[in-house]
Simulated scan of single mutants.
Amino acid sequence: MKIGVPKEVKAQEYRVALTPAVVKELCQQGHELFIEKNAGSAIGYDDELYRQAGATIVEQAAELWASVQLLVKVKEPQPQEYAFLREDLILFAYLHLAAEPELSRALVDSKVTAIAFETVRDSFGKLPLLAPMSEIAGRMSIQAAAHCLEKSQGGSGLLLGGVPGVAPAKVVVIGGGVVGINAARMAMGLGADVYILDKSLERLRELDALYGPALKTLYASEQNVLELLPSADVVVGAVLIPGAAAPKLLSRAMLAELASGSVLVDVAIDQGGCFETSRATTHAEPTYVIDGVVHYCVANIPGAVARTSSQALTNALFPYVRHLADSALKALEADNNFAEGLSAHKGSLISGDFAELFELPALPLQQLLKH
C-alpha cells in the first residue's frame, strides 16, 4: 500500500506520525512510504534518515496527499488541508470531532474514510493510541502548572514542592484515568500536596492501594470539588468521554472559589474543554487570565516535547498502520476494537451526539462499515 506522512501544519506542532525506524519496517514489508519534505526535521528526523529507511521524499503537501492510499498524521486536518480529502483516501489521525464541527463537515463532504486514534480500543477496552499522549499530557500538565505558578507568569508565586519550613502547593486532579494518574504522579514527585477525584470507587481503591496516604483520593462530587477549591493552587481537568465532548466540571461562578494566582490546566481542551471558561490556546500564547485565575489550555500539550511524543506515538501506531496497510478496511471488519476508531466513511459520520448536534448524516458503526 502507498502510505503518506505529511508535515504537520497546526501552530507549534512538530510531531511526526511515523519515525524513520517504523518507516523502514513498513518498507521492508513491501509497502511504499512517502514523506513530505521536512516532516520530521524539527525534531532530528531529517529527510536523509527517511530516504535511508526506504521512503520517497515529496516536496509539496498536495502532491503527497494525492499520491497515497493511507495518510497517517498526528493532528486533525487543518482548514488548509480540507481540500486534500477525497473519497478513496484512508485518513488515520487524532480527530477529536466533538470539538471540530467544520472538520466533521469536511469529512462528510469529501466522503473520506477517517479513523480516529483516540477512539481505537484494544481487547481490554482501553485506548492504546490515546494512552501515550495522555501519559505525556498528564506529566506535562504539572510541568506547565509549576511554571504558571511563578509570579512572572501571573501565578501566585508558589514553588510547587515548597521547601523545608514552607508548605508545598496543593494540586487537585479531577479524573483518575491515564492523564490524571500521570499528573498526580508528577505532582507527588515534585513534592506537592496532591488530591485526585474520580467517580469510580473501584478506581479510587486502586489508586489508594498503589500510593497510600501520599495521594489523597476523593469521590468526584460537586460538594467535594467546592470544598477543595478555596485552598487549591492548581486544578487539573483530566476527564475523558471517548469520542464525545468533555463534561464541564467548573462553572464560571465556581472560579470565585479559587484564590487569585491559582492555575487551571485543561487537558481535555481537545474535546472542548472541561471548564466553562476554557478556550484553546497555543504553545506561543499558552495562558490567559480570567478573574485572577491563570488558564493553561494548550490544545496539543504533547507537541511541546515533540521528539518524545513522536517516538511514543509511533511505537503505539505501528501495529495498526501495518494492519491497515496489509488489509485496508478489512482490518476494521476483522477487529471490532480497531473498528471503534472509524469516525467517517462515504459521507456519513458514526452515530454520536455531536453528529446530531452538527446536523450531519450519521450511521451506527456496523452500518458504516457496510456502507
Results as ranks from 00 to 15, higher is better:
173 V>S: 04
14 Y>Q: 08
160 L>I: 15
312 A>N: 13
106 A>D: 04
45 Y>G: 01
39 A>F: 10
306 A>I: 14
181 I>K: 10
262 S>W: 08
241 I>D: 06
86 R>K: 14
236 V>Q: 02
97 L>K: 03
120 V>R: 06
117 F>L: 10
213 P>F: 12
150 E>V: 00
128 P>K: 01
256 A>N: 14
236 V>D: 06
281 T>W: 10
126 K>V: 03
333 E>A: 14
175 G>K: 02
159 L>E: 09
88 D>T: 02
14 Y>T: 00
117 F>T: 07
134 S>W: 11
128 P>R: 01
303 G>L: 07
136 I>C: 11
110 S>A: 13
243 G>S: 13
366 Q>H: 15
88 D>S: 06
80 Q>L: 11
165 G>W: 06
356 E>M: 12
61 A>C: 09
2 K>T: 13
221 S>Y: 07
95 L>V: 13
344 A>I: 07
369 L>D: 06
170 K>S: 00
261 G>P: 05
189 G>Y: 06
66 A>M: 12
24 K>Y: 09
267 V>A: 09
148 C>Y: 02
146 A>P: 01
12 Q>S: 15
188 M>G: 00
263 V>Q: 02
257 E>H: 13
270 D>G: 08
15 R>A: 09
303 G>M: 04
23 V>Q: 01
214 A>D: 12
70 L>Q: 01
17 A>H: 11
286 P>T: 10
212 G>R: 05
69 Q>S: 12
15 R>T: 02
365 L>M: 13
37 K>M: 13
226 L>W: 09
153 Q>S: 04
172 V>C: 12
199 K>L: 15
318 F>D: 00
230 P>I: 14
254 M>K: 02
49 L>F: 05
141 S>G: 00
55 A>T: 09
15 R>W: 08
81 E>T: 03
346 K>M: 12
3 I>T: 04
349 L>H: 03
2 K>C: 01
264 L>S: 02
130 L>I: 09
61 A>M: 12
324 L>Q: 02
60 Q>D: 14
202 E>A: 13
212 G>L: 07
